[in-house]
Computed example of a mutant assay.
Amino acid sequence: MTTIYHNPACGTSRNTLALIRNTGEEPTIIEYLKTPPSKVDLIKMISDAGLSVRDAIRQKGTPYAELGLDNLQLSDAALIDAMLAHPILINRPFVIADKGTRLCRPSELVLDILSRPQQGAFTKEDGEAVINAEGQRVAQAQ
């Protein structure tokens, strides 16, 4: 079973959810701004994704600067507490799947942790083709 910590206002989150659904699976959707993860779950997600706490904080469009979170002397515990008090600071979307946990930025990172294959073509909201009609990942120009 796949779980996505989702923000429906975020294009990356919407694309990630659509990629999960393109496998034929309907994931558990947690709108984390309404239902934030517990402290234990947040710490586990960050750790399981192989991120530092600072890597899991969203800066753009959040009270990051106003809260002084750019202070590099702040402990991970202080940053976690800020994320729990202001869930908008939790970067998104986190996805927990059979093959692991990822912060799916860009959205196609979700493909690395899904067990089921893509079932058809998929194009991101911005028009970027990600999956072809055969369900295979489209090679991106470097």
Score class of each variant (00 low, 15 high):
Glu31Cys: 13
Ala49Cys: 11
Gln119Lys: 15
Thr28Phe: 09
Ser47Glu: 15
Lys124Phe: 03
Ile46Pro: 00
Gln119Ser: 08
Gly135Glu: 02
Gly100Ile: 00
Thr2Gln: 09
Pro117Asp: 02
Asn91His: 10
Thr62Gly: 11
Ser52Pro: 06
Arg105Lys: 02
Glu31Gly: 15
Ser52Tyr: 06
Asp41Lys: 15
Pro93Glu: 06
Thr101Asp: 05
Gly11Val: 14
Asp48Pro: 11
Ile46Trp: 06
Met1Ile: 12
Cys104Glu: 08
Gln136Pro: 05
Thr16Met: 03
Ile96Gln: 04
Arg102Ile: 06
Leu74Tyr: 03
Ile43Thr: 15
Ile20Gly: 08
Arg116Val: 06
Gly50Ala: 11
Asp41Cys: 12
Ile29Tyr: 08
Lys39Val: 07
Lys39Thr: 14
Leu114Ala: 07
Met45Gly: 10
Leu79Asn: 09
His86Cys: 03
Leu67Thr: 10
Asn7Cys: 13
Ile20Tyr: 03
Cys10Met: 07
Gln59Phe: 12
Asp76Tyr: 06
Gln140Leu: 01
Thr12Ala: 12
Lys99Ser: 04
Ser107Tyr: 02
Asn132Leu: 04
Pro27Cys: 01
Ile30Gly: 10
Asp98Cys: 03
Tyr64Val: 11
Asn7Trp: 04
Ser38Glu: 12
Glu31Gln: 15
Phe122Ile: 07
Leu79Trp: 05
Leu111Thr: 04
Arg92Lys: 05
Leu42Ile: 12
Met1His: 13
Pro106His: 04
Val53Tyr: 00
Ala82Pro: 05
Lys39Ile: 09
Thr12Lys: 14
Leu33Phe: 06
Ser52Ile: 05
Leu19Arg: 10
Ala129Asn: 01
Glu108His: 01
Gln119Trp: 01
Leu79Met: 11
Thr16Val: 06
Ala139Lys: 05
Thr16Tyr: 00
Ala129Arg: 08
Cys10Phe: 05
Ile20Lys: 07
Gln73Gly: 13
Ser13Pro: 11
Ala82Met: 09
Glu125Phe: 00
Gln118Asn: 10
Val95Phe: 03
Ile96Glu: 00
Leu84Phe: 11
Ala129Val: 04
Gln119His: 04
Thr12Pro: 13
His6Pro: 01
Ala141Asn: 08
Ser115Trp: 09
Gly120Cys: 04
Leu114Asn: 02
Gly61Thr: 15
Cys104Asp: 03
Leu33Gln: 13
Pro8Ala: 14
Gly135Asn: 04
Ile4Met: 01
Asp76Pro: 04
Leu69Lys: 12
Asp81Phe: 11
Ala121Ile: 08
Tyr64Ser: 08
Gly127Glu: 02
Ala49Arg: 07
Met1Gln: 12
Phe122Lys: 00
Lys60His: 14
Ala65Met: 15
Leu72Cys: 10
Glu31Val: 15
Gly68Glu: 05
Gln119Thr: 08
Gln142Arg: 07
Arg102Tyr: 05
Gln118Met: 02
Gln73Arg: 14
Arg54Asp: 04
Asn15Lys: 11
Glu108Asp: 09
Asn7Tyr: 13
Leu79Ala: 06
Glu25Leu: 14
Lys60Trp: 12
Asp112Ile: 02
Ser38Ala: 13
Ile96Met: 01
Met45Gln: 13
Thr28Ile: 13
Leu103Ser: 03
Gly50Trp: 09
Ser75Asn: 02
Met83Glu: 09
Asp112Lys: 00
